[in-house]
Design a protein around this nucleic acid. Structure first.
Length: 902
RNA sequence: GCGGGCGUGAUGGAAUGGUAGACAUAUCGGACUUAAAAUCCGAAGGCCCUAGGCCGUGUGGGUUCGAGUCCCACCGCCCGCACCA
């Protein structure tokens, strides 16, 4: 009997699947369709364990659906545009195109050995002209439909790299690559009108029942709907009134000042007239728009000298301040401040010595406002001590409604709904992206390119030796004829944000070679994505943009109505993590340290004096062991080996730990950290596959944690997974070589088999992969120990192979063949549990006395309640507890439990 | 600050309100072996010397015949958003 050799098995079956073409998806057929998709990768050049986990999960679903008679679409592609390719070109030379396509080839080569059930005939990269040309067509249609427009916007500008930076690319106010101080600059940019769909994108979230509640909530918060009052303050100088928006109009009597954004038109006007204000506004603009910049920014204000009248009392004048914390692109860019009931306003008033007016509602205590503002609760009733609409007691929500009504009736304000969601700026001053297909003509202005001229291809002859966008300085690329008048004109050199590329790729997979963005018949058949799987990091942007695109594509006729929400079900999987081993070199520190608070403190102390000596060790460089206290510890492998200590010798390792003379090495274990090259804790799937095979890697990433949680990769875990697969192979081999007659153990084994079929299927269908795997372990144990006859065992082993096949497809094919299965296991019908076999004829019921388990009885499964009660009461434990008395109550849960209350 | 989630053995984690700790890792013991590896068998939440029993799912309360699970409060950790008016 041969041993389990993953290398041989896996290559063989991958070839067999290829030859049979079972993963190629075609529209025809009367089976129900099933579209499963994992978020496509960026071609960095190496696959990582996160990819393995993500694609394995999708593959489990895809293979299970295939076996349950579905017409499965399971495609793969590459999110191939983006900065890293250009950065590589700048850093190491070469061309982004070659770099990217080279990486794709490498990654495809690393991915194929995983044995994924992918239809590779549909593969594309977003940097293929065939793809981005269609994206340009889509852009033109969206422009036509009024879903794209150009406007001036304030952006993060990197003056060294000469490009716009996304907020995430600004670190501490500096460009992430150049290190230059980022400026806020106003540029003309292209925008998608996503905000016009705010309400639709928000309300449709309710229909996404199979999305994680967390993701829906994150999108809801991101869209940020709020309801409030918009009204104007008359200026005493008679100039244009200042319009403000507030969500708490009920606190209007607490107004202290009116604030405007530094970008507000009034501020801009004053800036031109008054150098002091110009200086103040410039100060406000410094530091970009990043979170950090905002976080650390102190509240700054400047009294403009303008005065306005309170809408409820023309004799009440309020000053108008420019304040740095007011954003121009939310609401009207102007607010009224109520320090008593808003912390931010209170801080500002304290700083600039503005009046803090009385409170207007009361909670239980009437402590006056000092440093903490009272925020009126929205749903709790409070007593209003002074409210202009005559309220005395109301919740915040009621107070707001009443106030809006009051203002509307009085004619000085109106209730409005606002959204935080802003339009999506898609222009990037980069080369490696999809060119925006428009032309700038001196006489016609901005003119869309003609569709027959698409794709507008990126030129290949570009250089990256200078900062900025190579398209800008290309000698000929910009030159073109105006699509409108035919005169000499210039191309737009901005390219699209790479999020555009990933906002419709799922639709393109339904017809990847179509001459139009999609083929409606194919889209009608394959859409929606039945199951989408990816990381939680895309909870907002990618998924929101895709939802927007699905709607835009429907408006422009590229997707059917049913695809308005493109992802029927979404699953967000956790990361694959690995311990980090942090080592401090050459220290005269006591002993060898592990994890735990003391070790952390000690290390922190040491790091203070030796800040440069920490380094990260590769897992191979340390030996982990368990100290006598039960703490996990690690020592330098080289140090242990020098002393002749074997890695498995825990006694010697413990002694080393205690040995004062072995001081000088500290290895700190940081468990379960994100894999990162710089921390030397990346496990390369390629190495795992060559050592253990793809099935082992697949099995392990699914086995140890629920799929939505992080899973820690450990060498021991991977080895254990491999051992288990070897065991299954051995057990199946023994069965196939045996010849035992049927016997009275058969039934028990087959019952267990049906239970396993049931439990594993439920697990696979509900993302309970770890639970399914636990059942498979248990059933393997049962099968290995069973004395049943060969026929029964062979049958059980075949079902085991089938149940394992979504996770370990290669091994399962091998076992299937070994055990005499017909054809490929991949296409064999999924096992169905016999309901009659799921319930045993006799069941063991625990007997509780007053809720505590005291005994158990074995009864027929269909014994009626009264009979069960009689049996239960006759048990010794119950008799003893009753001591002759009658029980107060007896609860019999059929097939579950009996509880006797005495 | 606002919103959400999670706290179960040494570890990852099981458990439609019904026998807490399945399954796995690590650990320990045994068998086989000249030996090692591989494999197989077994032990194992804590405490009471044992029989038997008591305690036990972050803490404190509550609902229930029965709570890891539901409700309230608190503590701790994690995630998302955030000068959003």
């Amino acid at each position: 009997m041969s041993r389990y050799s993953a290398t041989e098995i896996e290559a063989k079956w991958q070839e067999a699947w290829d030859k049979a073409g079972i993963f190629t998806a075609t529209r025809h057929g009367d089976k129900p369709k099933y579209y499963v998709l994992e978020m496509f990768p960026y071609p960095s050049g190496r696959i990582h364990m996160g990819h393995v986990r993500n694609y394995t999960m999708g593959d489990v679903i895809a293979r299970h659906k295939l076996a349950t008679g579905h017409n499965v679409l399971h495609p793969m592609g590459w999110d191939a545009f983006g900065m890293p390719a250009e950065n590589a070109a700048m850093a190491i030379g070469g061309h982004p195109k070659e770099w990217t396509y080279g990486n794709i080839a490498d990654m495809r080569g690393q991915m194929k050995p995983l044995g994924l059930s992918i239809d590779w005939s549909r593969e594309f990269a977003t940097c293929d002209p065939e793809y981005y040309g269609q994206q340009q067509a889509l852009f033109l249609d969206m422009l036509d439909a009024g879903l794209v427009y150009r406007k001036n916007a304030v952006v993060n500008w990197d003056p060294v790299d000469m490009t716009v930076l996304a907020n995430e690319q600004v670190e501490n106010g500096r460009g992430w690559r150049s290190g230059a101080l980022v400026e806020r600059r106003e540029l003309t940019q292209w925008f998608f009108k996503i905000s016009s769909m705010s309400e639709e994108l928000l309300s449709a979230l309710d229909t996404l029942e199979n999305w994680p509640a967390k993701v829906r909530l994150m999108q809801e918060n991101w869209i940020g709907k709020s309801r409030g009052l918009q009204f104007s303050f008359e200026r005493t100088d008679g100039a244009e009134p200042i319009t403000v928006y507030t969500t708490r109009p009920d606190t209007l009597l607490g107004a202290s000042f009116v604030g405007i954004s530094p970008d507000h038109p009034i501020a801009k006007q004053l800036e031109a007239e008054n150098p002091e204000i110009a200086e103040f506004v410039a100060e406000c603009r410094k530091g970009g728009t990043t979170e950090e910049a905002i976080e650390t920014a102190e509240k700054l204000g400047y009294d403009t000298g303008i005065r306005v009248k309170h809408p409820l009392d023309p004799n009440w004048e309020l000053p108008v301040w420019i304040a740095n914390f007011i954003l121009m692109d939310y609401g009207t860019g102007a607010i009224f401040a109520c320090p008593a009931h808003d912390q931010r306003d209170l801080d500002f008033c304290r700083k600039y010595d503005l009046p803090v007016v009385d409170t207007f509602f009361a909670l239980d205590d009437d402590t006056p406002v000092d440093k903490i503002a009272f925020v009126p609760p929205k749903t709790e009733k409070v007593r209003w001590v002074n409210h202009f609409a005559g309220l005395t007691e109301a919740t915040g929500d009621e107070a707001i409604d009443t106030t809006v009504d009051f203002a509307e009736k009085a004619g000085w304000g109106e209730g409005v709904t606002k959204y935080r969601l802003r339009d999506w700026g898609l222009s990037r001053q980069r080369y490696w992206g999809c060119p925006i297909p428009v032309v700038h003509c001196d006489s016609c202005g901005v003119v869309p390119e003609k569709k027959e001229n698409l794709p507008i291809r990126l030129p290949d002859d570009v250089s990256f030796d200078k900062p900025g966008n190579p398209l800008d300085r290309h000698p000929t690329w910009r030159a073109c004829a105006c699509p409108s008048c035919g005169a000499a004109a210039k191309r737009e050199t901005d390219t699209m944000d790479t999020f555009v590329d990933s906002s419709w790729y799922f639709a393109r997979f339904t017809a990847p070679h179509a001459e139009t963005p999609t083929d409606l018949a194919e889209a009608e058949y394959w859409m929606n994505v039945d199951q989408y799987i990816g990381g939680i990091e895309h909870a907002i942007l990618h998924l929101l943009y895709s939802r927007f695109f699905a709607r835009a594509m429907q408006i422009t006729g590229h997707l059917p109505k049913k695809a308005i929400e493109p992802f029927d079900a979404l699953f967000t999987q956790g990361m694959v993590t690995h311990a980090i081993y942090e080592f401090v070199e050459g220290l005269d520190a006591p002993g060898v340290q592990g994890s735990g608070p003391e070790a952390d403190e000690e290390l922190a102390e040491v790091m203070k004096t030796n800040p440069t000596r920490a380094k990260y060790l590769y897992p191979e460089e340390v030996i982990e062991f368990v100290e006598m206290t039960g703490e996990k510890r690690a020592v330098l492998r080289s140090a242990a080996e020098k002393l002749g200590i074997n890695a498995t010798d825990s006694v010697a390792l413990n002694n080393l730990w205690l040995d004062e003379d072995a001081r000088g090495q500290m290895v700190k274990i940081i468990p379960s950290a994100k894999m990162s090259k710089s921390k030397n804790n990346v496990v390369d799937p390629v190495n795992i596959i060559s050592a253990f095979g793809a099935d082992t890697a697949r099995w392990f990433v699914l086995s140890d944690s629920p799929p939505e949680r992080d899973v820690e990769w450990t060498a021991a875990g991977a080895e254990a997974a491999h051992k288990h697969l070897s065991r299954v192979y051995r057990v199946a081999s023994e069965i196939s070589a045996s010849d035992n007659p049927a016997n009275d153990e058969d039934e028990a084994l087959l019952r267990e088999m049906h239970k396993t079929i049931h439990d594993v299927t439920v697990g696979v269908e509900s993302f309970g992969f770890n639970a399914s795997i636990a059942k498979l372990y248990a059933f393997t144990n049962t099968l290995a120990k069973s004395k049943a006859g060969t026929t029964a065992k062979r049958q059980a082993a075949r079902k085991l192979a089938q149940l394992m096949s979504p996770m370990t497809p290669h091994l399962s094919e091998e076992l299937w063949q070994l055990l005499g299965g017909e054809g490929l296991i991949a296409t064999a019908p999924w096992p169905v549990a016999d309901a009659a076999m799921l319930v045993d004829d006799t069941v063991t019921l625990p007997i509780q006395i007053n809720g505590k388990r005291r005994a158990e009885i074995s009864v027929a499964k269909d014994m009626d309640k009264a009979e069960v009660e009689k049996v239960a009461l006759s048990t010794e434990a119950v008799q003893k507890a009753l001591d002759g008395a009658t029980p107060k109550k007896v609860i019999v849960v059929p097939g579950r439990i009996v509880n006797v209350v005495v």
